[in-house]
Amino acid sequence: MRLVIARCSVDYTGRLTAHLPLAPRLLIVKADGSVLIHSDGGSYKPLNWMTPPCTLTTWRRAEQETSEEPGNDWVEQWDVVHDKTGDKLRVRLVEVLEDISQELGVDPGLQKDGVEAHLQALLAENIDTLGDGWSLVRREYFTAIGPVDILARDESGGSVAIEIKRRGEIDGVEQLTRYLELLNRDPLLAPVRGIFAAQAIKPQARLLAADRGIDCVTLDYDALRGIDDAESRLF
């Protein structure tokens, strides 16, 4: 990653045009080729940017080259061209204040609290939150196309396959549908009904689940952890 703090102007041309007049800014060039221009404000959002795939070309103006045009006394120019659309980002640096390069290596990724594995473990430990008399058969119940997150039995002893997601979308409902088709071929389990559980479920996923005869359950992660007691809330 390269970080440059410089007084610069920026022009974007392509599907739209935009101009940033001369001012001090932070320029970020990432290993994936993306280029971002930030001001000292606006939170995380850059003023302008170019995403990969793109090509960055830089060159410096020779000391003997001069221009009488006001504001055109740049010392270094960056041209960033998107390889597919041809959109162009031109950055002209008038004064470079800092220029730092550092290899960051492979990032392990963001590890969020409340990921699917945590939700699965918590729901398995508290399976009775789905109803009195419910019992856990096992977590990660094997099928030929992958493991079902939880296999349980309801109060009447019926088999229930539960698929758990942080965000419930159509793909998750499709996945559970495939599991149910396989599980219902097993005479020791059939009939098996499905529950699609998530912290938030999109309306399209709810509609598809209802069409497939699958129940939807919204999981309260804090309540499962014992941090939040829904019955003691004022609101």
Rank of each mutant, 00 (worst) to 15 (best):
L234T: 07
K45N: 10
D215Q: 15
T177G: 04
A144F: 09
L136G: 01
W78N: 07
A205L: 05
T51F: 00
D132K: 13
E68V: 08
V29D: 09
E140M: 08
N126I: 10
V115C: 14
V10F: 05
T66D: 13
S9D: 14
R2K: 15
L110S: 09
K45L: 12
L176K: 06
P191N: 07
A31D: 14
H38S: 06
D186R: 14
L136D: 01
A6T: 00
L176Y: 01
A6G: 03
L122P: 09
L97A: 13
L182A: 05
L93G: 04
D186Q: 02
V81C: 10
W59F: 15
D79V: 14
D99E: 09
G109R: 03
I145P: 00
I37V: 15
T13D: 00
R139C: 12
M1D: 11
I145C: 04
K45R: 12
D186P: 03
T177A: 10
T85Q: 11
H38R: 15
I195H: 00
E116K: 02
P70F: 02
T85C: 01
G105I: 13
L22A: 06
P21V: 08
G133W: 04
N48C: 03
T85L: 02
C54F: 06
A161Q: 11
D211W: 11
W134K: 00
Y141F: 12
P187S: 09
S67C: 09
D149T: 05
L22I: 03
D73V: 01
D83F: 03
V115D: 15
E181Q: 13
H82L: 02
V29S: 12
G172A: 09
E68G: 03
A18E: 07
D87T: 06
P70E: 13
R185T: 06
G146V: 04
C54S: 14
K112F: 15
L219A: 12
P46T: 03
V106G: 01
Y12D: 01
L89P: 14
T58G: 01
G41V: 04
D107I: 07
L97D: 08
Q199T: 15
V91Q: 06
P53T: 06
F235G: 12
A6V: 00
Q175F: 03
A152G: 01
E181L: 11
V91P: 10
L189Y: 07
A198G: 11
E163R: 05
L188R: 13
I150W: 12
A6H: 00
A161N: 03
G157T: 03
A197Q: 06
A190C: 02
L123T: 07
G146S: 01
R138Q: 15
A210Y: 00
D40Y: 06
L22R: 14
L20K: 02
Y221F: 15
